[in-house]
Design a protein around this nucleic acid. Sequence first.
RNA 1: GCCCAGGUGCUGGAAUUGGUAGACAGUGCAGCCUUAAGAGCUGUUGUCCGCAAGGACGUGAGGGUUCGAGUCCCUCCCUGGGCACCA
Length: 818
Amino acid sequence: MKKYIPFQIEPKWQKKWKEAGLYLTDLSEAKDKYYALVELPYTSGDLHMGHWFTFTMGDILARFKARLGFNVLFPNGFDAFGLPAENAAIKKGIHPRDWTYKNMEKMRDQFETLGTSIDWTKTMVACDPKYYKWNQWIFLKMLEKDLAYKGKLLSNWCPTDHCVLANENVDSGKCWRCGTEVIQKEVDQWLFRITSYADRLLWQDPPQVDWPKPLREGQNDWIGKSEGVNLRFKVSGMDIYFEMFDSVPQTFMAQTFTVIAPEHPMVYELVKGTEQEKPVMEFVEKIRKKKASDRFKVDQDMEGIFTGRYVEYTPTGKNIPIWVASFVVFEYGTGVVNSSAHDERDFVFAKKYGIPLHPVMFPKDSNEALKVKNLEYCYHRAPRGILQEPAEFKGRKWQEAREDIINYIEKKGYGKRAVQYHLHDWSISRQRYWGTPIPVIYCDKCGTVPVPEKDLPVELPYKVDCAPKGKPPLATAEDWVNTDCPKCSGPAKREVETMDTFVDSAWYFFRYLDSENDVEIFDKKIAKAWMPLEIYIGGPEHALGHALYSRFFTMVFKDLGLIDFDEYAKKRIHHGIILGPDGSRMSKSRGNVVNPDKEVKNYGADAIRLYLMFLGPFDIVTSWNPNGVNGAYHFLQRVWRLYEKVDEKVEVFTSADLRIMHKTIKKATEDIEAIKFNTAIAFLMEWLNHLSRKEKVSIEEYKTFLLILAPFAPHITEELWSYFTSKKASEGKQWSIHKQSWPKFDNKYLEEEEISIVVQVNGKVRDILVMHKDIIRDKEVVETKALDSKKVQKFLKGKSVKKTVYIQGKIISFVVSS
RNA sequence: GCCCAGGUGCUGGAAUUGGUAGACAGUGCAGCCUUAAGAGCUGUUGUCCGCAAGGACGUGAGGGUUCGAGUCCCUCCCUGGGCACCA
C-alpha cells in the first residue's frame, strides 16, 4: 500500500466534491432542515487558526447532521466593510475595494484547503451593493417606523480628522492617527431606536432559546432596566426645574444635596453671571479633559464643586445645595442625581466636602444604631433597615415599603413613577468611506429627504480619497454628493457618512437564504422554512454588540411582517481561543502566530482538524502545541495502515469486538450531538488501539470506523472509502462517504458478561471483584463474595461490620468500627 | 470594585453528574527494529516507602456533610475573561 501523503489526496477530493456539488443545499426541501452557522469572517486577508477551529466545529456538526438525514445548510460569507480596508488604502495606496476583494479570493482558497462542507452558492459579501442595498432598505423602514432618527450624542471627537473615535482609538487623550487632543463633543448622528425594544430584548428566565447564561446576564445588565421615580423640583430663584431619577425612592426624605453631571448644559445656566461661573466652568473643562483621556477612573477621581444654587426640596422643606460632580454620568437618566446618606458614592462625596447628611433608615438592633450615629452605617442600605421618615412610614421595613412610598410620592406630586435603561440608542453614523452609504438627501427646501426605495442602492463612488482631510471622505466626491432632491428636484446633497459595520452583521444569516433576490430583502417563505438557526457558533466577545443588535433586527423584521419569530437562533455557543505556543494570544507583533497554511503543508488539513478538535472542549482557551498535531497525524497514519489488515474473509466477531464497536458508535453519536468532539475522538482512538492489536480486521469494522471518523477527517476517510466502492463511483453522489448514513448501534452488544465490583472498607478501595452479570443483582451473593476476599478480610480483622452499602453493579462498601 | 468562568500528573485534558481519579493523547525515559529517517514497534512515565507483594499520600488551601467528595456546602487564596461612574 502506498504511503499516506495528505497533500496528494486532499486537493483531489476537494476538487471532486466541488465538481459533484456534494454540499449544495436544496432550499426547497425544508423538511428536517438543519441550519448551522459560524460567525462570518472579516476580510483580513488571512484565514487564521481561530477560523480553522470554529469552522471545523461547524463543519463537523453540518456533516454529522447531514449523515443523520437532515437537510443541512452550512453557508458562509464575508464581513467586508470597515476600517482596516480604509487604513490599508491610506498606508499602501490600494483602493479599499481592491484590497478587500483580493483578500477575499485568498481566503476562499484557504477555506478550500480546510475541506469544509460549506455551500458557497448561498453567500453574501457586505460590500457588495447587492447586499448593502438591503441595509439601506432596512434604514428606510426604520425611518418609516420612527426607529431611525438624527440626534446628538456626546462622543470622543478628533477635530483634525473630523471624526468620532472609539475609546480604543484614543491614546492617553490623543487621536491614534494624528495625535491631536481628543475633545468631548456633541455630534449629530443617525441613531436606531433600540431602546424602544429594551423590554423585549430582556432575557426571561428560563430563556426561550438555548443561549449561554453569561451572554444573557451580560445583555440584561447592559440593557440595565431599573424602576423608580423621577423627582421634580424647582431651582431656587430660577425658572429651572430639576428632574432626578431615583431607583430607591424609599430614601427620598434623606436627600441633603444634589449633583449634576459636568457635561450637562444646565450647569452653565445655573452659574451664568454669578461669582461661581468662573470656578465652576473651569472645573467642568478640567473634568471634560480628564474624561476624554482613557486614564479616568471614577473612584479615584471623585471631585466636585458647589454651584452656589439650591433646589427647593419641598418634602423636607429645605433648600438643598447643587454640586457639579465628576462621577455623575450625563448619558444616564437625566444627568442629575439626588443624593443622600444611603448611597455609598454620595456618602463618600459628602464626607469629602463636608456636606451634611440626614439618614432616614436605621438598623433594627440598638447596638448597630450606635454606629449609625457615627454615620458608619449611613452609606449603605442596612438590610434590616427600618424607616424613620416620612412620619407616615415610621417603623416600616424599607424594602417592603417601596410600592407605598412610590404611590405616596406620586400623590404628593413630588414626582412620577419612571423606568430607566442603561441601554442607549445605537449610533450608526461613521465618518468613513468604506461602509454602506446612509440613504438620505439634504435639500435646502425640503429638509432631510429619504432616498426613494426605487433609487436603491445608493452606491459608493469608487474614486474617493480616504486620507484624512478634515471632513468625511465621501464629502470630497463632489459629483456624488451633489444630486437632485427626490421631492422637489432642486439641488441637494447626499448624506456623506456611512453605516456602522454592525448593521451588516445584524441580519446576514437571513440573506444567505436568498442572496440573489433584488426584489425583496429575502423570500418570506424560505425564511419561514429555514429560520431560526439550529446553531450559531461565535466568540464571547460578540455577546454584547453583535448578539444584541442581531436580536434587535430580528424583532424589527418580525414587526415588519417579514418573519414570525423573535429569536433567530435556537442555540448559540461561544467557542474558545487557540493561543500561540507561548501561551499568549497569537499576534504578528509577538511573533507567535501559527500559520495554518504551513501546517497544512506538513500534516494535511485532516490532522489539523483532528488536533484542534481533540485539544479539549469547544470553549477551551489553550495554547497551540506543535507535538499535538504530530500526534493527530500519527493517528491518521495508523488508520491508513490498518487498511492492510482488512480481510474480506473475516466475519467472526468476538463479543469484545462487537462491544467496542457499538460502544464507539454510541459514544461518538452522543458526544458529537453534545458538541463534545474531544471525547468522541478519544473513543475512536481506543477502538483503533483495539483493532490494531488484532490479526485481521473485518470490512464491516473498518468501514464503520471510517464512517464515524469522516466528519472529523473528511479527506482521508473519503480516500480509504473509495477503495471499497470504486466501481460505483459514477452513481450520483452516493459514492462519497459523506453521503452514507450514520452507523447505528445496538444496545444488546453493549452489555458486559463480566462486571467489576469495587469493594470498599470505610470508603477505601480494597479489592475489585469480577462477577458474572447475572449474580450482581443479588446483594447477598455479592456481599458473601466480597467478604471472602483475602484483601478485604485483612481490613476487617478484629472489627465489626456496622453497615453495608451496595450500589448494584458498581460498588459494595463496608462500614466498620474498630 | 463588581459579575462570570475556572484551578486535576511534566503538558493538553478525561471522569457514567456523589461511586476504581488521571481515560485518550503529547512529552520524557528504557529497549527492539532499520544502512538511514522528522519512520515503525514494545515497555514505562502523579509523589513517597519497598527487591517485591503491598502500602501511604494525592484533584489550589482549610473546614464540613457522607459508607464514599475532583464533583455538594462554608471560608480563604490564585488565574483567566467581561464590565456600566447605573444614583
